[in-house]
Every structure is written in structure tokens, then in C-alpha cells.
């Protein structure tokens, strides 16, 4: 690409100590509290977490989509070397769509109901390319074809409501790909879809990534989807990363008790059904976070850590396993051992 500016060894997307807070009458609500990760070209990072974990809020910050009047964003986000946090709107407009694009859970609310699908994709293309209507329309048809929409030329003139849910999500993906972005952020792109359609869309995103070699951030609450798409996984809880590793590592040998709790909550499709062991209690309110580790009030392992450290001292995100590159935010000294001996045998 002509705008390739990233330094040689630097991953395409680098997030460092990202903080996002919303001022409210009751004081600032910190939705993201110091998040760091990076995604090189050609890899897919899944960010996993439940409602309020900060997974979507952090991704909006990566796109520079937070309103500076209502949100405070701190730390650093670089896309191919260019800083996003604090960048002026004019600079962000050149980045959005061209370097980074986003697809959302609900394509119906992300597409304009009054304009044809063809016009919307062509507009996205012309926002970054000085071309006439004809070539832009041809590009739109080519994109619809690429995302697997039959009869693309005819469907250019149809409106979003004339497409089914899965086809609409394909339109969204076509629009996101219009300018060959190097980073694609997919925020729960298949959550509203039926399972057979979800499988089609996951396959499509995987194929496109292979073809274009872009970096993908895939936000989801569904660990099953993670197992299908991700190279790397970041698990978030209460605005922070609590575990990081490759998908195989995190799904097969997780280190953090929160990740254990998630796995124990998900029924399997094979094997003898075993009782689910849900995480007790509720996620904390962001306005009223517990001291120490944010997960400790719900954690079944806190008795194992001496001197009540879980309640008094917030653990760092640090290597806690012999495996290279794995990080976990937990005081437990031998999480691998506990997982293999106690958790694994009772997983669904």
C-alpha cells in the first residue's frame, strides 16, 4: 500500500496503556483502565469479555470514535505508526475507512435505510479515492461479488431492508473492505445471526484476511467463536486485560480463574453433560470497583493466596507460565497446576 509507514518490527496496531473514562454526575466512570496489546498484519486477535468489560469501548477508541466532549481517552493507539489518541478529526477521517474499518453487530442500524447498498459502498470508496461515479459503482459491484452476494450488479440498486440478516452483514463487510484497510475491527459481527449464517460469515472473514493479510480485532463474548477465528486472545474483565496468549493456549490451558469460570459455564456439544459451575455473583459496577483484584469477590481461588492479597493488592498483567508470551493478571503462583488437576477434569 502507498501509505505504508509502519516501522519494520512494529506491529500494525499498537495499543499502550489505553484509558477511557466518561465523566458522570457521580464522578468519572473508568470503562478501560490501562489496556495494552498489539496486533501484527495477518493475525486475528479476539477480545473476549462480558457486558461492561470494556471490549467495545476500547475498540471505539482505536478508531478514534469517542466524542472528545463526553469522553476522556488517555494512553496511546498507533496504526501503522500514526497516533490516534488526541489526533484532530481531519486526520482521523483520513485513517477511518482507509487504514482501519469497523463492522458492527447490527448491520441494519449501521446502513442507511434511504440509500441503495451500491451508493453506500461507492460513497465509502470515493471518500478516499478521487474517482467518478462509474468506477466507484464498478468497485462496489466487485466488492459485493467478493463477499459472496449473488447477482452483485443487480443488487447494487437494492436497499438494505431487501437483504437478509446474513446478506446485510456481507454488505457491511464489503463496505469495510472498500479501501483495503490494514486493520479490520469486527465488534460482535455474528451475534445477531443464526448459527449456520454465522458459520458462513466467520469463514468469509477468515478467507478475506488470508487474501488481504490485514490485522483483525474480533470482539466477542462467545468463546466458541473465538475457537473458530482467533490466533491470539485477550480476556477482559472490568476494564482490564486479565489474560493474554494464543487461542490454543488460552482455550486449552487458561491461567486466570475468570477464564476458568467462563469455560465451566459453557455447555459442550459432545461428551457426557456435566453440571455447569457458573461464576457466582455479578460483574462489578464500574462506579464501584472492588479493591485489589477486580475479580476477587467472585473468585473461587482467593483463599489460596496468602495474607488476603487479592483484596488488598491489584495484580499486574505478567508472565505466569513457562510458555512464551503468555500473560495473566492473578496472584496465584501455580495456575497451570491448579487448572490441570482441578478444573480440567470437571469441564463440560
Amino acid at each position: 500500500m502507498s501509505y505504508e509507514t509502519s516501522a519494520h518490527d512494529e506491529p500494525y496496531l499498537v495499543v499502550r496503556d489505553l484509558r477511557v473514562s466518561f465523566p458522570t454526575a457521580a464522578g468519572p466512570v473508568e470503562a478501560v483502565r490501562g489496556l495494552s496489546y498489539s496486533v501484527p498484519l495477518g493475525r486475528t486477535l479476539a477480545i473476549v469479555g462480558e457486558s461492561g468489560s470494556g471490549k467495545s469501548v476500547s475498540s471505539l477508541a482505536v478508531m478514534g470514535l469517542h466524542d472528545p466532549r463526553r469522553t476522556r481517552v488517555g494512553g496511546s493507539v498507533t496504526l501503522g505508526g500514526q497516533e490516534i489518541v488526541g489526533a484532530p478529526e481531519s486526520a482521523l477521517r483520513r485513517v477511518r475507512g482507509a487504514r482501519a474499518a469497523m463492522i458492527f453487530q447490527d448491520p441494519l442500524s449501521a446502513l442507511h435505510p434511504y440509500f441503495t447498498v451500491g451508493d453506500q459502498i461507492a460513497e465509502a470508496y470515493r471518500a478516499h479515492h478521487r474517482v467518478g461515479r462509474g468506477p466507484a459503482r464498478a468497485r462496489a459491484a466487485e466488492l459485493l461479488d467478493r463477499v459472496g452476494i449473488p447477482r452483485p450488479r443487480a443488487r447494487l440498486d437494492e436497499y438494505p431492508h431487501q437483504f437478509s440478516g446474513g446478506m446485510r452483514q456481507r454488505v457491511m463487510i464489503a463496505m469495510a473492505l472498500a479501501n483495503d484497510p490494514k486493520l479490520l475491527i469486527a465488534d460482535e459481527p455474528t451475534t445477531a445471526l443464526d448459527v449456520t449464517v454465522q458459520a458462513q460469515i466467520l469463514d468469509l472473514i477468515g478467507d478475506l484476511q488470508q487474501e488481504f493479510g490485514s490485522a483483525v480485532v474480533f470482539i466477542t463474548h462467545d468463546l466458541g467463536v473465538v475457537s473458530e477465528v482467533a490466533d491470539d486472545v485477550l480476556v477482559m474483565y472490568a476494564g482490564r486485560a486479565v489474560e493474554y496468549g494464543t487461542a490454543d493456549q488460552v482455550l486449552a490451558r487458561p491461567l486466570h480463574p475468570y477464564a476458568w469460570g467462563l469455560l465451566e459455564s459453557i455447555p459442550a456439544l459432545t461428551g457426557d453433560p456435566v453440571p455447569l459451575r457458573p461464576i457466582p455473583g455479578l460483574p462489578p459496577r464500574l462506579t464501584d470497583l472492588p479493591g485489589g483484584c477486580a475479580f476477587h469477590p467472585r473468585c473461587g481461588q482467593r483463599e489460596r493466596v496468602l495474607h488476603g492479597r487479592c483484596a488488598s493488592e491489584a495484580p499486574d498483567l505478567a508472565p505466569r507460565s513457562s510458555e512464551q508470551g503468555r500473560l495473566s493478571r492473578c496472584h496465584l503462583s501455580h495456575p497451570e497446576l491448579i487448572f490441570v488437576q482441578e478444573i480440567l477434569p470437571r469441564l463440560p
Binding site: 467463536v225 490454543d248 459442550a268 459432545t270
Partner: peptide, 13 residues
């Protein structure tokens, strides 16, 4: 087809 499309976490283990 329905069963085959559903991701199964047990596969990772």
C-alpha cells in the same frame, strides 16, 4: 448442518 455450524469448545481440548 446445524450441529456442524455450532462451534464446539471441547474440540480445543
Amino acid at each position: 448442518a446445524l450441529l456442524s455450524a455450532a462451534p464446539n469448545l471441547a474440540t480445543t481440548r
